[in-house]
């Protein structure tokens, strides 16, 4: 007979394991959310108890079940100005540091991967125009990449729901959006400022094309990779960056568990990771 009950001990054991594997920490306050998804997977996999399911999760060589569960336990919703403390950090800390040693004849290069449906690169573009005085003195290239060509096409159209733009300041909304059938479209100037490219972060030939990137936003992507792929992806991004360049991960992610190549940099607004300046 199946016993899909999850005891407090089971939850703690699972939470510790999941944290080590993904960097995502579930506090007891998230029990309802986690238990519901664990029970669903136990039922789907035919596990007769938490113990049985946990054994599969921990020892399955392919890691397939852990990936499925991870997908269920991560929220994919994206929207404008999401985790915008990192954009504040971009303006206040990362860019001033980057330009202090940057050749003024060359553009600053910012790379968003994954682009998803475009909310993040467009948010950055707006932040740069609205909040960064340096935009008067520097050229900035904004590149947004995704493996999914369909989502890139959606991003290029730049049409969003009211919910997606709910955190955009009203004055920015007036300046950078217009109402169109189906929602709100990002202005042509902003859309034209972002270069959308298809890149598979696990494909050497794709990543080899990326060079001299000063700042990378790679948020909530690596949690979907297995350990090997995550490490390799971190190594590719290292290659794409200029020495002293920065990388921003999602707030639940930590480079320390992925690769030792980067240095932790604590800025007032955010913790980010830096390719060491002296690195060859």
């Amino acid at each position: 007979m199946s016993d899909h009950n999850i005891s407090e001990h089971d939850f703690d054991k699972f939470a510790e394991f999941f944290y080590r594997k993904t960097g995502i920490k579930f506090e007891p306050s998230k029990r309802y959310f986690v238990d519901k998804r664990l029970t669903e997977r136990m039922r789907e996999t035919g596990s007769d108890s938490f113990r049985h399911y946990f054994t599969t999760l921990r020892f399955q060589a392919s890691g397939e079940e852990l990936q499925r569960l991870t997908n269920l336990l991560t929220v994919n919703e994206t929207y404008f100005m999401r985790e915008d403390y990192q954009f504040r950090c971009l303006i206040d800390s990362m860019l001033p540091d980057v330009i202090s040693r940057h050749d003024p004849r060359k553009p600053i290069r910012i790379w968003c991967i994954p682009s998803s449906s475009g909310e993040e690169p467009y948010s950055i573009a707006m932040y740069l125009l609205e909040e960064w005085e340096g935009i008067n003195d520097w050229d900035v290239e904004l590149i947004a990449s995704d493996i999914d060509t369909q989502i890139l096409a959606t991003a290029q159209k730049g049409i969003y729901s009211e919910r997606s733009i709910r955190n955009v300041p009203a004055s920015w909304k007036r300046r950078y959006f217009k109402s169109v059938p189906g929602g709100h479209q990002v202005s042509e100037d902003i859309r034209d400022a972002v270069e959308f490219t298809r890149i598979n972060l696990s494909e050497p030939a794709d990543v080899r094309s990326m060079r001299n990137i000063d700042i990378i936003f790679c948020r909530n992507l690596l949690i979907y990779f297995d350990d090997k792929s995550r490490k390799v992806a971190a190594e590719y991004m290292y290659e794409a960056m200029s020495p002293g360049g920065y990388i921003c991960l999602g707030h639940t992610e930590s480079m320390g568990r992925i690769s030792p190549l980067y240095r932790v940099k604590k800025f007032p607004a955010a913790i980010v990771y830096q390719r060491p300046l002296e690195a060859k």
Partner: peptide, 12 residues
């Protein structure tokens, strides 16, 4: 100065 798209191909 401004936001601008890359003028050169990324791949050499």
């Amino acid at each position: 100065m401004a936001l601008k798209k890359s003028r050169k191909k990324n791949t050499t």
